[in-house]
Design a protein around this nucleic acid. Structure first.
Lengths: 247, 247
DNA sequence: TTTTATTGTCTCAAAGATAGACAATAATGC
DNA sequence: GCATTATTGTCTATCTTTGAGACAATAAAA
């Protein structure tokens, strides 16, 4: 394992960062995992990090994700670069320092560190899909908390992070049928209703039940398993599993 | 106007570049504009450049495009980031220097410049669409020539530039109908046949003439103009124009 | 005036999407 | 047990979109 190093070190690529939009699904709702920074002032920020010199960008995104959330082995894909000219977190950091002057003593940035991290940054946006029930986000000492928020009711985030989520969601909608990636958000087995509710929360609109089932089954990518007896007073639904390989 | 500066200067973002895939259309063929470097050894390389500190990435892409080709005011969009870890042009530059040792005297890189430019680079891919007849590519002193090559018969290019073109073409195919951008490749007025041949060259397959015409007209984005008398012994086709605003 | 090549449009069939209907069924209440 | 209830799986009819063939219209040449 590599040591976690100070971001002022030169073995990162300068002025280039990675931000991750992590989608999860629970209680019929599409959610995004957002850490809240361990400082006074209510700063929410997407998990971010930098790229080592000897590391590919996809690799870096996976490492950052694991370092910041403990989540690994999940679907991850770049979706857009954010790079307007005045894109810097200096305003955010100045405000953070202002609000935390007293407690910041030992944690205070050195001038060199501060210069490094407040320069203008270009950021590569990645989005991730996880089965939310399979994963326990683990916060780092950087964070006060790390929680799932409904994608359409996120807390106010720093910089352009809300715009990043919007852009990631658009990409997710465009790619969903093309690349058959919805199943990354569900447990291994699921009912047709669960899959439909997932689609509905991603597209924020209702689908007709009969036609949805037909369309999905016609894709010929699901394996029908045993029935799921929920204890409810109605017909038991089948469980399905995504079949990745050959029939 | 800003001076063209040496790439070793610190007012560029380090280790981040932009590469442009410029699509044009002529003689029923989709082409890409590729400069050939003004050195011995047959080096073809997509127009590339770096990002100034006070400049947005889209802005940078437009500037690079104009500096390297003289082309401006065209459709331009980022499509993907290329960032594998060992992505560096050091092999290419070493080979270039080896083959041009004698003539390189005054042009030889300083050690500092060489270090700067041979580090590992992350590159943002942009693709551009131009009306090839409206544009006269202007080569810089960097280039021996700058020419259009059929997209499926490009000369061997340095590094991963062929992969960039492939990826750009994929994106173009995906976006073509979604964003109605095909018209950027044609003159202001065009016949239905010309539009169809453009589509065929982008997707590399034939479309049925009758259905193509119906599909396009049903989009309700074309304005029918007068007929075009070509002098050929057949019915004269209508000219069309892309109507961007309201009907 | 006839011929030729191409264009614009129509029709019909096939495939896909949309909406309504209904039997099947797992538990509950009597 | 037996009717009731909520939900599931599927069928059918309808509408829309896509694909293929056919044909009249027409600009110039023979």
């Amino acid at each position: 394992m590599r040591d976690i190093q100070s971001p002022s070190e030169q073995d990162y690529i300068q002025q280039l960062s990675i931000d991750c939009v992590i989608f999860g699904y629970q209680d019929s709702q599409l959610s995004v995992l957002v850490p809240k920074l361990n400082f006074r002032g209510d700063f929410w920020a997407l998990p971010s990090g930098f790229i080592y010199q000897d590391e590919g960008i996809d690799e870096a995104a996976r490492r950052i994700l694991e370092d910041r959330t403990g989540i690994k082995d999940i679907y991850l894909e770049q979706f857009r670069v954010f790079g307007n000219s005045p894109r810097s977190n200096i305003r955010f950091l100045e405000r953070l320092i202002e609000l935390n002057e007293d407690t910041l003593g030992d944690k205070r940035f050195g001038r060199k560190e501060f210069d490094w991290i407040t320069r203008r940054f270009v950021s590569i946006g990645y989005y991730a899909l996880v089965d939310l029930n399979k994963v326990v986000p683990r916060k780092t000492e950087l964070d006060e908390s790390i929680d799932w928020y409904p994608v359409r009711a996120l807390p106010p985030m720093i910089m352009d992070h809300q715009e990043m989520v919007n852009s990631a969601l658009e990409t997710l909608q465009l790619n969903l049928d093309q690349k058959l990636i919805a199943f990354n958000l569900l447990p291994e087995t699921f009912t047709m209703r669960e899959l439909q509710e997932l689609y509905e929360s991603i597209f924020d609109r209702a689908f007709a039940r009969n036609n949805f089932q037909k369309k999905i089954l016609d894709l010929d990518v699901l394996e029908r398993l045993e029935k799921k007896f929920t204890g409810a007073a109605n017909k038991a639904p089948f469980l399905y599993r995504f079949r990745n390989g050959n029939p």
